[in-house]
Design a protein around this nucleic acid. Structure first.
Lengths: 215, 215
DNA sequence: TAGATTGTTAATCGATTAACAATC
DNA sequence: TAGATTGTTAATCGATTAACAATC
């Protein structure tokens, strides 16, 4: 199936990330009982320009009301739909070490409809057990489980050495998107998407500024 | 002490991040016994343009040899110096829950000279104990420990509700840079630096592309 | 209607890239 | 020297922002 690139001409990566940020803000605003918000007000919360907010939204349609702003609940729903957050995504978590466990219990994922449906690990002591009702499965059964559950998203939280092998297995089994937490650069075939979360790169940019300040 | 902004006119954030990436690559190349590398070769490893590599480096000086390229060991040392990775940074870790434990054991940090020197936590069962020789201290003694150890960097891995309070305490005690893993937007005074690591934003951008693909 | 705010165009800004003289 | 690659300038590209007609 060809990716329908003609439908979405060229959405900047940063626009997607901001949509994600807007969505959370709107969720909060809705909780707080706020009915409408202007691009100006929304922008101020993130030190952005109001034109940028409007332009980000304009890539996907006209969601505002002139003279009023945006209806919080309506815009939230639109953005959730655009980001694919209006459904539940079953996710595979690979690796249940320190980082894997932390990610398993991380509140932020489930909040937005991502649900860890299966955990893969190599440890015989863990295989066959459950964690909070989620089965822990050995890596030898990875392909079978991914196919049976029709999983499209996987979170990789294994040691760096194992990351590429496991990613190859995941993609071969039908995984379309890999979120990699292992400190390793990975390769995926063209049809799959890969995001690397580098836990220490931010620390290194911070030390750059501290080091400069001390000069 | 005024930040010496005149020394560094306007280094793009992305340049700093790439320097960090180059540095790791050079560490690997050095291990592999590679003596020199051209901007072209370096660029290819990250799908960048060779001119971009040269420009990134040019912000800080002339490190190459025309006709040859860059000496791996020499450039590595220069970049480590620029990024402040030529020294050890003692770091405070706040919160020893799932995420805190994962970060404590995370290999990527120590690799580059960041050393967790003290862990803060509220749990009476943990306070007073040690983890891998690192003391676990109650939050009530946070300021004293930060000052005594002259810490400048802190990693925040507490629940979202507690994040702002703990950050205020850290900054008041002299912390200059905060790396926040809590799913909360934080505020720090002008003199401090803050980086938010959002573990789920990447997942949300991935689901955007999957959702689009399914249209 | 008057006031407010959108959606969108055009201007600005900044980052990436091509090109090439300098030079190892 | 000839070949290769840097450092840097100028051109290009793309993202941000200002401005404003449309319109609620």
């Amino acid at each position: 199936m060809p990716r329908s690139t003609y439908r979405l001409p060229k959405i900047p990566e940063m626009t997607i990330r901001r949509l994600s940020v807007y969505t959370r803000c709107l969720l909060q605003l809705e909780e707080d009982g706020v009915a409408t918000i202007s691009s100006q007000e929304l922008a101020e919360r993130f030190n952005l320009n109001s034109a940028q907010v409007r332009k980000d939204l304009a890539y996907f349609g006209e969601f505002g009301v002139r003279g009023i702003g945006y209806h919080v609940t309506g815009l939230k729903a639109e953005l959730q739909r655009i980001l694919g957050l209006d459904r539940e995504w079953p996710v595979a978590l690979v690796g249940l070490g320190n980082l894997g466990s932390a990610l398993f219990h991380y509140k932020g994922f489930t909040r937005q409809g991502f649900r860890i449906a299966v955990v893969f690990d190599d440890d015989p002591a863990k295989i066959g057990r459950e964690i909070d009702g989620v089965p822990i499965v050995g890596t030898q059964d990875l392909a079978r489980e991914v196919r049976a559950r029709q999983l499209e998203i996987a979170i990789v939280a294994v040691p760096a050495e194992a990351a590429q092998t496991v990613t190859d297995q995941l993609v071969a089994a039908g995984i379309k998107a890999v979120l990699n937490f292992a400190p390793a650069r990975l390769r995926v075939p063209r049809e799959a998407r890969l995001k690397n979360v580098d836990l220490s790169i931010e620390l290194e940019t911070l030390s750059f500024y501290l080091a400069q300040g001390n000069r």
